[in-house]
Amino acid sequence: MNRFDIDDDLVRTLVREQHADLAGLDLRPVDGGWDNQMWRLGDELAVRMPRTEQAPSLLRNEHRWMPELGPRLPLPVPVPVRVGEPSARFPRPWTITTWVPGEPADRTPVTRGGPAADSLAEFLRLLHREAPAEAPVKPHRGVPLAAVTSHFESSADAVGGLDGELRAVWDEAVAAPEWQGPPVWLHSDLHPANVVVADGTLAGVVDFGDLCAGDPATDLAAAWLLLPAGADLRLLHGYAHADEAMIRRARGWAVLRGMNLLAIGRAGDRGLPGGKVTWGPAGRATLDRVRASWRKAGLPR
Rank of each mutant, 00 (worst) to 15 (best):
R3W: 08
D5C: 02
D5N: 09
D5H: 08
R12V: 03
R12I: 04
T13V: 12
L14K: 14
R16N: 06
E17V: 01
Q18S: 02
H19E: 06
H19F: 00
A20C: 06
D26K: 13
D26Y: 01
D26C: 02
L27Q: 08
G32W: 13
G33F: 08
W34T: 04
N36D: 11
Q37P: 01
D43H: 11
L45H: 04
M49H: 12
R51E: 10
E53A: 13
E53C: 06
E53K: 15
S57H: 10
S57K: 14
L58Q: 11
N61Y: 06
M66H: 09
E68D: 07
L69D: 06
L69P: 03
P71S: 12
V79P: 04
R82E: 08
R82W: 06
G84Q: 14
P86Q: 10
S87R: 14
A88Y: 08
P91H: 12
R92F: 03
T95C: 09
T98Y: 04
T98E: 14
W99D: 00
G102W: 12
T108L: 14
P109V: 04
V110G: 07
V110Y: 06
P115E: 09
A116P: 00
D118C: 06
A121D: 05
E122H: 05
F123R: 12
L124F: 02
L126V: 01
E130W: 01
K138Y: 01
H140E: 11
H140Q: 12
H140A: 07
R141E: 03
L145K: 13
T149Y: 07
F152I: 03
F152S: 05
A156R: 15
A156M: 06
D157F: 02
L162E: 06
L162D: 07
G164T: 11
E165P: 00
R167D: 09
R167G: 06
D171M: 12
E178M: 10
P183K: 10
W185P: 00
H187G: 07
S188W: 07
S188F: 04
L190A: 07
P192S: 08
A198F: 02
T201Q: 15
A203P: 00
C212Q: 10
G214L: 12
L220H: 12
A223D: 03
L227G: 01
L227F: 02
A229Y: 03
A231I: 05
D243W: 03
I247C: 10
V255P: 11
L256H: 07
G258I: 13
G258F: 03
M259Y: 04
L261N: 04
I264P: 01
I264G: 02
G265K: 14
A267L: 13
G271C: 08
P273A: 10
G274H: 08
A285H: 11
T286R: 15
T286Y: 05
R291A: 12
A292V: 03
K296C: 14
A297K: 15
G298W: 13
L299Q: 12
